[in-house]
């Protein structure tokens, strides 16, 4: 399944989490989202919000001042 991509760099908390959840809700269960976040508050607060809704953080990778996450939509 091809990964979708959502770039939330520059988007404030909690709008970033809200937009990530909106996208994940529209995806098929098990499909993966490549998610870009800023370092700092976003990387601290967005992943727990996604996990709380049952989405799975498969991978996280720091890229300078940003983070690239792989998130699997809730089954």
């Amino acid at each position: 399944m091809s990964a979708e991509r959502l770039d939330l760099r520059g988007v404030k908390c909690p709008a970033n989490a809200a937009r990530a959840l909106l996208r994940l809700e529209c995806m098929d269960a098990g499909q993966e989202l490549e998610l870009w976040l800023d370092d700092g508050e976003p990387i601290d607060s967005v992943p727990p919000s996604l996990e709380q809704e049952g989405h799975e953080i498969v991978d996280r990778d720091r890229q300078g001042m940003h983070w690239c996450l792989r998130v699997r939509a809730r089954r």
Binding site: K12, P14, A15, A17, A18, L21, L22, E41
Partner: peptide, 17 residues
């Protein structure tokens, strides 16, 4: 919708939708 807690996120979800 600017608050970092659950209630804020719920409002932010309506706003962003």
């Amino acid at each position: 919708p600017s608050s970092g807690h659950r209630a804020g996120l719920d409002a932010a979800r309506l706003l962003e939708r």
